[in-house]
Structures are given as structure tokens and as C-alpha cells.
Design a protein around this nucleic acid. Structure first.
Length: 431
RNA sequence: GGAAGGGUGUCCGAGUGGUCGAUGGAAACGGUCUUGAAAACCGUCGUGCCUUGCAAGAGGUACCGUGGGUUCGAAUCCCACCCCUUCCGCCA
């Protein structure tokens, strides 16, 4: 949620920046509700004051007939106005929830993802003296990927992942975890990127994979039509990323300044409906209803959060570089950063099988958009209280497996294992 | 899933209809005392929202698991739900 005070102070900016993100927001009506709501609230509170004064007068004694009559009258008035207020509040809140977070200044303005700006290209695209294959051609030949049987069991966009590819996937998690909990590695990344963030290591978490509706909504990520599965007969939704259950971890809590940054790296299976993507990326592992992901989630002081965002991007680059995967880094445009984001960067890995860079990582700069709804705050050492900021970013999903298979394939149809992962696959150099 | 008990502030814990945002204790913070520390003593010590103020602040209101209800008045009574503990059942 965006701060209503900010909207009051900057109505034109809010309308304009929402539009840049592709959302049409009726700011005038929102502020109208806000005004109406506050006036009613004043009246309600005044009546409540009168009621409190009246019941204060009759402490320890029976009230007179007159006082009871007066009380009744107040009660009716309060009830009436409270009802009006509740109606307005509902409309107000509903409209407020349609306002996206405001992009920061260096977010490129654009109307489609094609306007994302490539800010860096890293690594050499591999040169093959044979016709490179798709990951699903290799995967099926190797017996690593079985979509036909998965479709029989669960429908399209599900997969059985088998054999060495499973080992490779677990290698990815273990490799990333080993780096993220290592303060020395983080210090080096900070130094190499001239950042000023703390080197506090990440805490590994296995979070719940479901969240209650109200909590999910607070993350600004509940998107039932396109993305989110609901559990029947329960007030529970399946997460589409560990972010969705990590971010609300400190719901309604006040953190101590001294405890920040709080850094978590969480692993879950993620579920996505992928509505509106019919026929897109139907082959292989690229776009599934169910996939695994290791996600970074950080809670920061407002003044540190942008640096933290850049730090998470630096970590993502480090991880990709350690695997030797060629990629490009994108500063996402207003149309593509997402509803709760103030900024966002993607890493797209080079996929020889598609002859394209495709998304493997996202880093989200959220500011206080989630904590506004989640009421996650920080108490500063001077006692003042402020909303905390959240940042989230992919450590690894399964998609880098695709990049590994396609970039490191051999003429024989095998896959060379990046050095960094070998310790986790029995020190083999090829599978 | 069944039975019983219970959810009160950072924590422990009192409060069963009337100035109760809530007694008391602990922790924390500030101070007195002390060479220093401990102890003792004094003081401070929840959050959201609204109004007002340049601000420090002031005033109001709400919050005792959540949502409803009863009442002139609810932490307290009633209903529903959620969660926790113990026992039973089931179970990776």
C-alpha cells in the first residue's frame, strides 16, 4: 500500500507514475473518499467522547433515567455514523489498494518489457562447432525430463525431473546457500561493487508454502486470476515465491534498529497458474506451474534499502559468474517492474537453445509498500518508529539449470558441470 | 477429529459490568548513592488513527486472539471463528 499522506501531498505525481506503470488510478476519487472518511471519523470520535464522558459520570452508581435516555440517543447516533464510516472505509481502502508503488527516478519509462534497459552484458556466448540442442531435447534424451507422464498425472506445465538433473538442482541450492551464509564472500562482493552495506550473512529458512488471504494481500502479490492457486475450503493460497511468506514474517511487529539488516534466504516450491501464457514456453522447464526457488528477502532501514537492493543484484551477478553463465543485466522499465516495486532489475541468461537471453533472476526494490500494509516497523535507537523496507531477489530458481544444460552441452549430448557445482555432484565434471 | 483448559502491554501476571490503556513484578532506559559495580531508592517506560502546532508538544479516539451481539456503559456477559497447552485418535 502506498502512504495516503504521500498521495494527499502529491496527487498529480501519483496519477502520472501509476500511469507510467500501466495502472489507471482515480486519485481524485480516492482523495474524495479520504476527505469524507476523515470528516466522518471526526464526528464519530466526538460522539464517542460524549459517550465516554457520560459513562464516566455514572461511575459506581446507577445512572438516572435521564442519563440512560441520553446514552441511548448517543448510542443510536454513533451506530449510524459508524456504519456510514465503515462503508466509506471499505471504498477508500479498496481504491487505495489499486495504487501501485511509485517508481524511483532511474527507472526507465516504458510500456512493454521490450523497453527494459540492458545495463550490462557479462560473459561470452559459447561457440559450438555443432548444432546446439534445446535443454528439453537433451533432458529428454538423458531421461532427466518427463513431461508426458507428468501431464498424465497433473496436467500441462508439470514435470518429472529425474536422475542427474535432480542432483544438479540440489547442487545449485547447496552452492548458493554456502555462499550466502559466508560473511567473507559477502564482504568481497561488497568490496568489489563499492557498496556500503553491512556484511551480515543470510539466515537459511524453509518457510510455509501457503499464506492466508489477508497476509498474502499485504505483500501486494496476491494475483488470483493470473498467478495464485487457492486451496479449496481453506483461507489459504499457495505461494508463488518464498518471498510471499518471508516478507510477512514480521507482520505487526516492531524490529530494533540494531537487529537490521535482517537477511533471509528461503527455499520453497512455488506455484503459479500462468494464466494468459497459453501456448508460450510450453516445452521444457522454462515455464511451469510448479517449480523450486531459493529466494533472498531482506528487512532494512529506509536509508539502507536502495543499497541493499543493489547488493542483492551484485550477489545475483556473483552467483551467475561463479557458474560461468553468460547473462545480461536489465534495469526494468515502469511497465515491467511490478505493482509493489519502486525499481527492479532482471538477469537474463543466455540460452543457446533459444538463441536468446531469458529471465533467470529478478531483484525487487519495494521500499515501504509492503510494510505499510504489514505494519512491519523499526524502532530507532532514539525511540522513534518508522516503517521498515523490504527487498527481495532470486538467488536461484530452476531456470539456471536450463542455462547450464544449454551453454555447457557437449557434441555427445552431455553437459559439463561448472566447477563451483562439482563438489555437490560427486566431483563429476560431466553428466 | 474428540475432551478439558487457556489467549491481557517486551516478558510474567492481576483484573468477571462503571475513568481500566488496564494493579503488581521483571526487563530496559535515565537519575541518586558508590572509587567502580551490585543492591537500594526516585523517575521514565505500548501502538495505530484523527485534530491542532513550524516544532517540542497538546487534545481526542481505538485497540485486552479475531469478528459479531447484549448494555446507558464491556478486558469482564453472550455467539461464531482462529490459535495455544494437555490427554486421546491419526500421522511424515
Amino acid at each position: 500500500m502506498l502512504d495516503i499522506q504521500f498521495i494527499r501531498d502529491n496527487p498529480e505525481t501519483v496519477a502520472e507514475k501509476s500511469r507510467q506503470k500501466g495502472y489507471e488510478v482515480d486519485v481524485r476519487q480516492l482523495l474524495g473518499f479520504d476527505e469524507e472518511r476523515r470528516q466522518l471519523l471526526q464526528q464519530v470520535e466526538d460522539l464517542r467522547r460524549q459517550r465516554n464522558e457520560l459513562s464516566g459520570q455514572t461511575k459506581g452508581q446507577k445512572p438516572s433515567e435521564e442519563q440512560i435516555a441520553k446514552g441511548r440517543e448517543l448510542k443510536d447516533k454513533v451506530a449510524k455514523l459508524e456504519h456510514q464510516l465503515a462503508v466509506i472505509e471499505l471504498e477508500f481502502t479498496a481504491l487505495l489498494k489499486t495504487v501501485p508503488n511509485m517508481p524511483v527516478d532511474d527507472v526507465p519509462i516504458g510500456t512493454t518489457e521490450d523497453e527494459n534497459v540492458v545495463v550490462k552484458i557479462w560473459g561470452e556466448k559459447p561457440q559450438f562447432d555443432f548444432e546446439p540442442k534445446n535443454h528439453w531435447q537433451i533432458g529428454e534424451a538423458k531421461g532427466w525430463i518427463d513431461k508426458e507422464r507428468a501431464t498424465k498425472v497433473a496436467g500441462s506445465r508439470f514435470v518429472y525431473l529425474k536422475g542427474d538433473l535432480v542432483l544438479l538442482e540440489f547442487a545449485l541450492w547447496q552452492f548458493a546457500l554456502s555462499k550466502l551464509i559466508d560473511e567473507k564472500v559477502l564482504q568481497q562482493i561488497i568490496k568489489d561493487n563499492n557498496l556500503t552495506v553491512s556484511s551480515t550473512p543470510f539466515i537459511p529458512v524453509l518457510p510455509p508454502a501457503v499464506a492466508k488471504k489477508e497476509v498474502f494481500e499485504a505483500t501486494g502479490r496476491l494475483n488470483k486470476e493470473e498467478q495464485t492457486y487457492k486451496i479449496e475450503d481453506e483461507d489459504l493460497w499457495l505461494n508463488a515465491s518464498a518471498e510471499h511468506t518471508l516478507a510477512p514474517m514480521y507482520l505487526n511487529e516492531i524490529l530494533n534498529e540494531a537487529d537490521l539488516p535482517l537477511r533471509y534466504v528461503g527455499y520453497t516450491t512455488a506455484f503459479r497458474r500462468e494464466a494468459g501464457t497459453y501456448g508460450k514456453d510450453m516445452e521444457g522447464l522454462f515455464r511451469l506451474h510448479q517449480f523450486n526457488k531459493l529466494e533472498m528477502e531482506c528487512f532494512n532501514l529506509p536509508e539502507d534499502s536502495l543499497q541493499e537492493h543493489l547488493f542483492l543484484v551484485a550477489i545475483q551477478e556473483y552467483l551467475m559468474q561463479q557458474l560461468g553463465l553468460p547473462y545480461q543485466l536489465l534495469n526494468k522499465c515502469t511497465a515491467d517492474i511490478g505493482f509493489p516495486n519502486a525499481r527492479g532489475m532482471d538477469i537474463n541468461a543466455w540460452l543457446p537453445g533459444q538463441n536468446k537471453y531469458r529471465e533467470t533472476h529478478t531483484a525487487d526494490y519495494i521500499t515501504d509498500f509492503q510494510t505499510q500494509a504489514m505494519k512491519t516497523r523499526v524502532r530507532h535507537s532514539d525511540g522513534s518508529i518508522q516503517l521498515a523496507h523490504t527487498n527481495d531477489a532470486t538467488a536461484f530458481s530452476q531456470r539456471p539449470l536450463i542455462a547450464i544444460i544449454e551453454n555447457f552441452q557437449t557434441p555427445e549430448g552431455n553437459v559439463k558441470i561448472p566447477e563451483a557445482l562439482r563438489p555437490y555432484v560427486g566431483n563429476r565434471s560431466e553428466i
